[in-house]
Design a protein around this nucleic acid. Sequence first.
DNA 1: AATCCGTGGTC
DNA 2: TGACCAAGGAT
Length: 381
Amino acid sequence: MNLAVKAPRRQRGNSRAAESFPQPTARPQPAALLAWYDRHRRRLPWRAAPGKRSDPYRVWLSEIMLQQTTVKAVAPYYARFLARWPDVRALAAAPLDEVLKGWAGLGYYSRARNLHACACAVVARHGGIFPSDEAALRALPGIGGYTAAAIAAIAYDAAVVPVDGNVERVIARLYAVETPLPAAKRDIGQLARGFRPQNRAGDFAQALMDLGATICTPKRPACSLCPWRGGCVAQARGEAEAFPRRTPKREGALRRGAAFVARRTDGYLLLRTRPPRGLLGGMTEVPTNAWTVDFEAADALKDAPRFSRNVSGKKDIAWRRVPGIVRHVFTHFPLELVVYAAEIPTNAQPPKGARWVALDAIAEEALPSLMRKVIAHGLGL
DNA sequence: AATCCGTGGTC
DNA sequence: TGACCAAGGAT
């Protein structure tokens, strides 16, 4: 192997990282955290009983659901998924649409698409067994650096430290890291690696995350209860809450648009499926126009769905503007939709790409929360 | 590197 | 009420 042509190693090793940050007076000990964890570990649906081995499928499923999502929001979804698809082969065998329906309301729908793709890949590439090493996990759809480390540590007890938002906060406070996130991710990851445990790696990983979730919280951290209190620079300064620093993210411009709630007189609703990628990709929606910054309400009806005119004479559909506005906030822009509603004759054929769905059945559709709000508004619920 | 990608809870 | 942000990943 020709080492000479390799690029020089980036100078961000332990030594430099250690010199760059204020050192805690007493270095936090993994044993102290594990002892705290043994007393205060949270009982979570996906967490194995103490001393029991975790099922990699359950660890993976929970970790994907928990990405940018709270424990409380995930719990019912996790229970439903596990009951319906108890192992990776069952999930791989499910139609993607069923997975999207099950995911509806959880958000970040690319996670659901990747979840299904990952299940298929585990079956195809790994014989239905999740790999145990980070690199192989990292190569699977929807599994990034954090999730690969989390699965390796929690399911296989690999000596790695997954760094999620909780761990970033804990580390940033321990060392009073001045670099704001997300630029500080590399440095924080390096510092976290310094805590790589000799044993009980899975417990240590979960302990670190529990610490961030219950003690080292974003607001009003309970420092007096922290097992690592003595080793925390930010707490020693009385500034724990000021970390981690963050660069403010600039907000997206308000977009507006119109949505059309077409109700057939015999109790059907006009729905369609969004394109497979992008915003709300693959999910169900009522017909809408394009959501734009310069939306003109006066032009909204130009984009209303059109029905074949050989039904019910040539009379135009009587769209009525439903009073009020549906507001919704996406990660990168706020949205305001005006809603139009109409009663459509029973024999009207749906426009191309759309379909009639019984009102009784819309609860099982892959409807994102925004569309549930729109439908409720348009139906006067 | 910067953007895109949901939703609901909290204070 | 509105800003913050949660067990991030893909491009």
